[in-house]
Design a protein around this nucleic acid. Structure first.
Lengths: 215, 215
DNA sequence: AGGGCGTGTTACCTCGGGTAACATCAAGGG
DNA sequence: CCCTTGATGTTACCCGAGGTAACACGCCCT
């Protein structure tokens, strides 16, 4: 008797399978095998393939689950009625808080991997792409950039997303400081603190006569 | 007679194999199989494994080849005797020019993929990690950031690397503008143009009395 | 009763990374 | 002169993971 308890059906079953997949990914990371996920769900592979088509389908469905929450949170933060600096900090904090709470899920969102090797297309994962688009849209509708607006907002959307991705990744691994400080560091960068800071004595410059030392 | 022409030996042979691997990766992208690489070299798999241990070893050796050039170029740009803005632009242009000239190699550098699923460690590929460290070092030795210097320079090294990675990736795919314009857009972001720009009329703000509309 | 439909199974295929065992040639020392 | 050493190369195989038949059970609805 392979089915002692009557398993739910249809959409419900699908949710259960996603729950199982979620647990495995939380435990083993994005590299979790279909066999492992099936075992966690108490079933075998073909059922997973019936529900999700292929691995990308499963990972995609799993990704969208978490993406929707993160994306909604970021979108909300982008439209918070705050001064611009506070709003930016709020967005940064929202993202960092999200990845802090579920690192394994975060890895899944940012490094889906299984993309077809033929395409070799987009580097930013879909989840990040959506965030980049949200930032682009927010910049376009909120900031006056003159004639360069469209190009700058598109570029900056990707740039800021990549910046926060890389910095957040490093922060998650090293935990060099509390979250609030990280938010400040990134906001400071966007506020031109790197550009405004003074030179250090020994630094290179447009130096006409400085004496460089070897190696 | 399996060896009609006397094949070179030792380090020379290794270089030949790397050349073959390079050609395949240029042609098929980072997902190239060991069989394909062996075939391109006119041999079979075990020889590759003798020379490089495993796939990571091969990809690593191949990566380091190209990394050394890119890294040296970026390092040189970081130490160019220019005003800070010009120096930053020079670094950005150096990176974009490099990835523009060899897209497939660039993909290899940025998306090595094959990392062991158990570790699930660093997101930035080694090549990018090294660039991040160079930026960190440059900031530390050139810019006066006060007591926060160490943390900020480390954070910013990663952040800027990720920013340029994401923006550069998008630029490579879409080619929305010439390289010089892209350099300007990114430098402007780092120079706080996003922070300094004015608000657009309809934008959200610290608005005390705005009437939000439902969804 | 008899279709569908959704559930589940076992068994298999393919492909890619990785390895073992064996064959060959060139060089160098007793 | 022979025989060891170290490089080249081979065929044949193992294993794990994605993916796919083909088949079997249970339920609901006509």
């Amino acid at each position: 008797m392979p089915t002692p308890p009557a398993q739910p059906t249809g959409e419900l079953r699908r949710e259960q399978l996603l729950n199982a997949a979620d647990r495995v990914v939380q435990r083993e990371g994005p590299g979790a095998s279909m066999n492992a996920i099936a075992a966690e769900a108490g079933i075998t592979k073909p059922i997973l393939y019936r529900h999700f088509g292929d691995r990308n389908g499963l990972i995609g469905a799993l990704t969208e689950r978490h993406t929707s929450g993160l994306l909604a949170a970021v979108r909300a933060a982008l439209n918070e009625p705050l001064e611009r600096r506070d709003r930016v900090e709020h967005v940064l904090d929202t993202y960092l808080a999200a990845i802090e709470s579920r690192p394994q899920v975060y890895r899944l969102l940012t490094h889906p991997e299984g993309g077809d090797p033929t395409g070799a297309g987009n580097a930013l994962a879909p989840a990040l792409r959506q965030i980049a688009e949200e930032i682009t849209k927010a910049v376009q509708t909120q900031v006056d950039l003159g004639a360069d607006g469209p190009l700058l907002s598109e570029t900056w959307g990707r740039a800021v997303t990549g910046m926060v991705l890389a910095a957040g990744d490093w922060w998650l691994e090293q935990r060099p400081c509390p979250r609030a400080r990280m938010v400040q560091a990134l906001a400071d960068l966007l506020w031109g603190r790197l550009a405004a800071a003074g030179d250090l004595p020994g630094a290179v410059a447009a130096a006409p006569q400085a004496a460089p030392q070897a190696d």
